[in-house]
Write a protein that binds this DNA or RNA. Structure first.
Length: 354
DNA sequence: CGAGTTTGACCAGCGC
DNA sequence: GCGCTGGTCAAACTCG
């Protein structure tokens, strides 16, 4: 994305009478001004001192508010752009999905040629087949278990406890890496690898991970490269985390790792469930690797802004926000305020001199 | 030295 | 029951 333009959101109060307002002040006032300031060191009264103090306080506050307003406006501009991007993305996705559904309904393939969809042809482990077949599509309802399939859904072996399963397809930038480093999916959680197996239908090994952030967390993850497209990683998540996410999903582009993952859906099923249909409702999506720098400046700005906001006390934040909003809402107010302050300043210096 | 990874062995489910 | 397969365990190994 292009770098966001810096929006000038200064309030332009021009409160410094010695610089900006100097041209607007009449010659007499100007002389008075300079004369007043010339004798600033020696003949300033207490009243004038207080006035100067509040004036400079206001100037400083206004400067801080201007910086915050500048950031605020910049953020809202970026937010607008991101919203537009998201809208376009959603529309594109809808169109693609529609096209895919049309194609699928017109010529149902005898064999799934989609490189993003596992095609298990094993006569065994039927549950896996069904599971994989149910990965197609995005709009499978959560309760797709039909009445005829309810028996299979209520298999006593499963004890009716079906960990939620979600599958994420990720496109990696490094295809050649065949070691385990190529099976690392950074999703913000901490995983401990407890096994690796070469499966029958896929030459690339499948890695088994357990969530290691919490010892009692039952979530497991399987990561394997797609047999059809080795650049696509298939991450299968089973269960639900019983703890908060330790960190945000990383979008870094470290070699061998994968970014841009989006768990698009979840289901309530088990890999081992059998029957022609299960309650699987896992959608699939292949995401191209997010281009480096796409959100870089957004992240930097957000980070910086968040740091600055965090460093400021809460009351100050509220005050600054209220001040900023009230000031920006009414441009007449800013102009009037500026005029009043500068005018008052001029009047005061004139009356003090006289 | 501790945490994480590797890897061969073991176990369980499924079809024949 | 047997063989195949996926999933898990745990000792050995690696790394910081």
């Amino acid at each position: 994305m292009e770098s966001s333009p810096w929006v000038d959101t200064n309030l332009n109060l021009n409160l410094n009478p010695l610089s900006n307002h100097r041209d607007e002040i009449s010659v007499v006032q100007k002389r008075e001004f300079e004369g007043g300031f010339a004798g600033f060191e020696g003949k300033v009264s207490v009243k004038q001192e207080v006035c100067f103090f509040f004036f400079f306080l206001f100037v400083i506050e206004n400067k801080q508010t201007g910086v915050l307003m500048e950031k605020l406006n910049r953020m809202s501009n970026e937010n607008k752009k991101l919203t537009e991007m998201l809208t376009v993305l959603c529309e594109n996705y809808k169109n693609l999905q529609k096209e895919y559904m049309d194609l699928k309904s017109r010529n149902p393939p005898p064999e799934n040629n989609d490189p993003l969809i596992n095609t298990t042809t094993s006569r065994k482990r039927k549950s896996s087949e069904d599971y994989n077949n149910n990965m197609i599509g995005f709009n499978n309802s959560q309760n797709e278990c039909s009445s005829s399939d309810e028996e299979s859904c209520k298999k006593p072996k499963e004890n009716n406890i079906r960990p939620s399963v979600s599958r994420v397809y990720l496109r990696t930038s490094t295809v050649s890496s065949s070691n385990s480093a190529g099976l690392i999916v950074k999703d913000g959680y901490q995983w401990r690898k407890y096994g690796q197996k070469v499966t029958r239908d896929n030459p690339s090994p499948r890695a088994y991970f357990k969530c290691s952030f919490a010892p009692t967390c039952p979530v497991k993850k399987k990561v394997q490269r797609s047999a059809e497209d080795p650049s696509v990683l298939v991450a299968t998540y089973e269960g639900e985390h019983n703890h908060p996410q330790p960190s945000k999903p990383e979008l870094s582009m470290s070699p061998g790792s994968v970014s841009g993952l989006v768990p698009v859906s979840s289901s309530s099923s088990s890999m081992k469930s059998t029957g022609p249909s299960t309650t699987n409702t896992t959608a699939t999506i292949a995401l191209d690797t997010i281009k480096p720098g796409l959100f870089d400046h957004h992240h930097d700005d957000l980070r910086k802004w968040a740091q600055e906001i965090d460093q400021a006390p809460a009351i100050e934040q509220i005050l600054v926000q209220q001040m900023a909003s009230s000031l920006t809402r009414d441009p007449n107010f800013t102009a009037a305020l500026a005029a009043a302050i500068s005018g008052r300043f001029v009047d005061q210096s004139r009356t003090e001199k006289w």
